[in-house]
């Protein structure tokens, strides 16, 4: 099936299982950041950040109205990049 010169990672089933576990790991980390910047900094942890001033208000307000959106974009492109690497590593990318 594989015509590449990459290290063998065992059977196809084995590769798929490892691939999926790695995928879940990336998702869990990404979603932790996702929740931290929006529900965390933007809402629940805002009182803790009120000492940090940003343009007439505090950092929590900035996260709620801008910061979280910018972080979301970075998260998705990072995920796409990581998954492309993973697809190739386990030889499961589209041909």
């Amino acid at each position: 099936m594989s015509s590449r010169n990459e290290p063998k990672v065992g059977s196809v089933e084995e590769a798929r299982r490892k691939y999926w576990r790695a995928n879940i790991r990336i998702i869990v980390w990404s979603l932790l950041v996702w929740a931290l910047v929006s529900f965390g900094f933007g809402i629940l942890l805002r009182p803790l950040l009120k000492g940090i001033e940003v343009g007439g208000t505090d950092l929590g307000f900035w996260f709620a109205q801008q910061g979280s959106i910018l972080v979301f974009i970075v998260l998705i492109f990072n995920y796409a990049y990581q998954m492309n690497k993973l697809d190739r590593k386990y030889d499961l990318d589209e041909q």
């Binding site: 979603l31 996702w34 933007g42 709620a64 979280s68 959106i69 979301f72 998705i76 995920y79």
Partner: peptide, 19 residues
């Protein structure tokens, strides 16, 4: 501020969608 929900909610969903 309280309606920041719209901003975070309607963008944060794309992270879920992508992953």
């Amino acid at each position: 501020y309280d309606n920041s929900s719209y901003l975070m909610g309607w963008t944060g969903g794309y992270v879920l969608l992508a992953m």
